[in-house]
Design a protein around this nucleic acid. Structure first.
Lengths: 107, 107
DNA sequence: CAGGGTACATCGGAATGCAAGGTAGTGTGT
DNA sequence: ACACACTACCTTGCATTCCGATGTACCCTG
């Protein structure tokens, strides 16, 4: 899988997943990797960034069989960001589709 | 337009455009920018990379009203790369679509 | 002869993802 | 008791790609 394609998109994927339910970091790696491979070295700095920007909040929860899990919860700003990014992505994907199908010509 | 989304995709767009007809760098900037903004500072290093990797060949052609144009022509390897990248892109776009629609769940 | 369009090119900075490495807790096999 | 694997967190350095700024040079128009 082309690494470059993922740039910026993983942020959208994380926000989108969190818009359905709260998740902890390790869980996000497992869940997202079913569709798009993402490594721990990517997710943790990304989640830290999202928290710093106010798009998510965190809370700890004990776990049987491992250290406590840090859950991430979408804020209102995060939900707005998710919607915005999703819209941007769809417009971008359409533009690419247009270019690779039509060769950028008006057909 | 989210800059990060473009990472790696511009290479596909350039190869795809060249698969329809030979172009010179400045022309590619104008053509592609109708759909996806791309700057000269991006296209020239990209074209050099494609040439170094053997995906394109170049030839000069005089122009009325400006310096000579350096045309880029797709090689066989370039055409194969274009097909491969296009396939990768489509699978990637489907995976993203699946994630942001279904939230990564099996629905 | 100044300014704008054409057309090439390079450089440094910013953003992002990854592999590799580190810390701990829990459970299983021998 | 001890090694190993799995869970779960985290950081650091590296590679890649894109952009804005900048530079060169040609041609035409006012």
């Amino acid at each position: 899988m082309n690494i470059q394609f993922k740039k910026g998109v993983l942020e959208l994927c994380v926000l989108s997943t969190l818009s359905h339910k709260d998740c902890y970091g390790y869980e996000l790696v497992q869940t997202l990797s079913a569709d798009i491979k993402i490594s721990e070295g990517t997710i943790y700095p990304l989640l830290r960034r999202l928290k710093n920007d106010g798009y998510v909040e965190t809370y700890l929860q004990e776990s049987s069989g491992g250290p406590p899990r840090k859950y991430y919860k979408l804020t209102q700003e995060g939900a707005a960001m998710e919607a915005s990014l999703q819209d941007e992505w769809k417009r971008f994907a359409r533009a690419v589709e247009h270019l690779i199908e039509g060769g950028g010509l008006h057909e």
